[in-house]
């Protein structure tokens, strides 16, 4: 069983990444897990690299 999609929030700028929605315009398909996002990806709103992203999981 796959678990439910999660949302992650950038602690620097508040940007929310929703796994269910993905970021198709950024080349990330809907349903892409946070773990599966490339390491060289950066937050589209503040430019922080994934390695520094410090995403916190949010419940919504």
């Amino acid at each position: 069983m796959s678990s439910e999609y999660r949302k992650w929030q950038c602690i620097v700028c508040g940007f929310i990444y929703d796994e269910a929605a993905g970021l198709p315009e950024d080349g990330i398909a809907p349903g892409t897990r946070w773990e599966d996002i490339p390491e060289d990806w950066a937050c589209p709103e503040c430019g922080v690299a994934k390695a520094d992203f410090e995403m916190v999981e949010i419940t919504a």
């Binding site: 950038c10 602690i11 620097v12 700028c13 508040g14 503040c46 949010i58």
Partner: peptide, 12 residues
């Protein structure tokens, strides 16, 4: 703290 979040803290 994240300053950009000051202006959307209520919604969250």
């Amino acid at each position: 703290y994240s300053k950009p979040m000051l202006s959307n803290a209520l919604a969250q």
